[in-house]
Design a protein around this nucleic acid. Structure first.
Lengths: 201, 201
DNA sequence: GTGGCTTGATACCCATGGGTATGTTCACTA
DNA sequence: TAGTGAACATACCCATGGGTATCAAGCCAC
């Protein structure tokens, strides 16, 4: 009797998960407005009311997908800040994690970037706040590196936005099964970023 | 008699120009699919058939706007490659020009990035080819710097894509009348990029 | 000035797709 | 094994907006 509600909840969660997955793939491939909920339902082998039983609107699906995109990046910066290590090591780890987060959420990040105008204003504001939080934290990491004499940067704000862009943009050009492995790519990008902030190698 | 056709052509060009400008502003503010041609017409103080007299479809408007975005970046790399200067100086100039091109075409670049799924396949392919051309040329610039012993990069492809992303992403965060002037920003970003490729300062 | 042609406004069509009212099935309870 | 309710399919509504047929007005040639 204690397991019944749990199983039910798990089933519901699974259905939401599958729906979000199917929607993300289609939004990524075709774009949000060009994707009909009928198409999403067909991918899942169900019909529209199935979706409306779990989401109140198409925009809610979009918001969920985008939230995953931002959250992945935030986890990367939070993890780095909690490390017991020098700013250089924190940044090295962050750069790797951040790139892996972006590429592991390539579809979500792409949708977040492309479809922000299709978000409900409330969701847009919430996600914008998360992005600003990410930027603030990255600036603080860069600042600590400057103060420790490890980084050499005239303007940590511009550097933070540059790093954010450099890595976020990877969703545009990365192709799985490309020339480099994910790991090699992460090392390479990490080295570029350390060099950019003026870490002596 | 020789001037008549010319004036007519100029008037036609002006109408196209104004239409593209109004459309770009609205696409940028609201998104492509959320912008009706009626709204574009209203901005111009005309009606839909005016637009259809100069463009064969909404998608053609989008393609024109996006083409301007890519072209601006291509001009920057072409200009740099034609310079009689060291790779370091070429890259320094390119970085500045590229950033200024992106920010001078902020709306077009934003639309290009966000709305690629709404392009006709033929236009998408054409613009993709231009982007690849840009990447190839930037790689060749980085290569020449490595061969000259001025740049220190393990992988010029990854570096080119990183630079492209770093600068292209500026359309996301740049706000006119912000803390830094365009010029100061261009210098700062240029310095970051030179540092990234391993130019000794 | 008058006839033809170009331009764009008025008014319209209709495919599309988000969202929903209604009916049906199946799992679970007693 | 009959009854109850949740979950989902069927079938539908209708606002929206891209695109166009039609008509009016101005501009040019002659």
């Amino acid at each position: 009797m204690a397991t019944h509600p749990t199983i039910k909840a798990e089933v519901t969660a699974l259905k939401r998960e599958r729906t979000i997955g199917a929607a993300a793939q289609l939004f990524y491939d075709r774009g949000y407005e060009k994707t009909t909920l009928e198409a999403v339902a067909e991918t899942l082998g169900v019909t529209k009311p199935f979706i409306y039983g779990h989401f109140k609107s198409k925009a809610e699906l979009l918001a969920d997908i985008c939230t995953r995109g931002v959250s992945a990046s935030l986890v990367a910066i939070d993890t780095a800040l909690e490390l017991e290590a020098s700013p250089t090591e924190k940044l090295r780890n962050f750069a790797r994690d951040f790139l892996l987060a972006v590429l592991g959420n390539q579809r979500n990040i792409a949708i977040l970037t492309r479809e922000e105008k299709n978000l409900e204003p409330a969701d847009f504001d919430r996600l914008s706040a998360l992005r600003r939080e990410f930027d603030r934290k990255l600036v603080s990491l860069l600042r600590s590196g400057i103060e420790a004499g490890e980084f050499h940067l005239a303007d940590p704000y511009v550097a933070a936005l540059s790093i954010g862009g450099l890595v976020s943009w990877a969703y545009v050009w990365y192709r799985p099964h490309g020339r480099l492995s994910l790991d090699a790519l992460a090392d390479e990008v990490s080295a570029l970023i350390l060099s950019m902030v003026g870490v002596k190698t």
